[in-house]
Design a protein around this nucleic acid. Sequence first.
RNA 1: GAGCCGCUAGCUCAGACGGUAGAGCAUCUGACUUUUAAUCAGAGGGUCCGGGGUUCGACUCCCCGGCGGCUCACCA
Length: 489
Amino acid sequence: MTLDSNPIIAGRLLKLSALRASGVDPYPPRTPVRLPIAEVRGMNPEQGDAVQTSGRIRARREHGKTIFMDISDPSGKVQLYFNSRELPPETWEILEHTDLGDIIWVAGVLFVTRMGELTVKVTEMKVLVKAVRPLPVVKVDSEGEVHDAVSDPDLLYRHRCVDLLLNADSRERLVSRSRMIKALRDYLDGSGFIEVETPILQQLYGGANAEPFITKYNFLDQQCYLRIATELYLKRLMVGGFHKVYEIGKDFRNEGVDRTHSPEFTQLELYEAWTDYEGMMLRFEELVSAAAAALGKGSEITFQGLSIDLATPFARVPFVDALHRHSGEALFDMDHAALARHAGRLGIATGGADRPDLLDKLFDHYVTPTLVQPTFVIDYPVELSPLAKGKPDNPMLTERFEAFIAGIELANAFSEQNDPLLQRRILEEQAASSGHREGGVDEEFLYALEVGMPPAGGLGVGVDRLAMILTDAGSIRDTILFPHLRREK
RNA sequence: GAGCCGCUAGCUCAGACGGUAGAGCAUCUGACUUUUAAUCAGAGGGUCCGGGGUUCGACUCCCCGGCGGCUCACCA
């Protein structure tokens, strides 16, 4: 469909030509001096101050010889008043070739209308941008009630610019995400960490159990993977003497999409020498507190109707205890067959699931939904945690935790395994037994452990999910500016 | 991957039992010199998601497909 097959767009294109024909550049290269709209609104109208500002036309109310308009910029909205008797005819003519959505610059004088609205009486105007595509019109009445809000999620996700322009919720949420990430960085930088960047394009993938995206580097005629985690590279840095290090970046997992999963998501991973998973619990608590504070939130927040208390310390519950308590049975002591029967009775798919898979599924079934208040689930079974150090007093368990809020897994951390021989054995066994580990064992990672990695704690935080919790977003997609969608027809 | 729901004008939505599509906003024309969901009068605007089928006739019923939403499954 060509642009002008839509009659509304065709009309705008005509006005665009008309502007050009009368010597007006509809896309001038520079903006005259202007004040942000919020500053205009903050001025004292008694003085009849001269002001210059610019913004997008959001509403237009014509009254014969006069026109009221609302224009907005990111800082706010202000009303303009045009009077044809007091404007040069050329200016009035330009005005008649503007539409909702156009961006204009005006100069004028402040006054307050009969209705008490601070208004710029325009004496001069310029078109800065002629919008050729109509913006959906959303109206807000005097009670603040929004009318005809654009609600089609498809339209909003595909055309995020429209969403951001029209929906204050979206705009504020995504700004909050940025502020939150800045707070995480500030906290870590202030705590002596350094931020690094590790490869996204990898010849091997690892650091998590996930299906990778596969791509190809033409120059070397070589298959590559998009990273699924940053873990193995950050640990090389630990070996190299970066003892407090973190990365905030995208990981890619070639798996399903739902409310809490996106194929492309942002993870914070940090590693810190001379500490362990206990230290990581403190880090996580402090990161969450810093993030909440940056958004002006206290410890009491609401998420999807749930009241959540972010006050630290967060609860700690051993994995096995929680599993047994919520299931009412000693599941951890059962063998594979018994677990499979148990899971089968609950209608959980057990095909191909090994014992650790079953334990994890059963945990998800019985315990995860109950973890509404911030909770560290600690001491995971060793089979679920190939990169974590075992507990000295119990070889079945590891020094690992996952952090949950509102039933959502937000973080995963452990006392990092640094025994090179043990780590090699675990990774090789895993590579042999698991069909989809095409990447093989990361020898360079093992080489680094052989050189010697100091005792350390490591922590991974799902940044998008933390943003969900702190901005009360029902879907991870709401926290991602451009979430992945299927190709449009 | 499965089930359910949805897709009608630029936007939000109606459309009884199958009879050839409507409203509000937006757009266009006209009126109006302080309005603010401005108001008033008039006009234009549709591949009813796509493709098949049933039927004299399909937005409507059936089948296949697309996209989206929700739920489930998958996902350390």
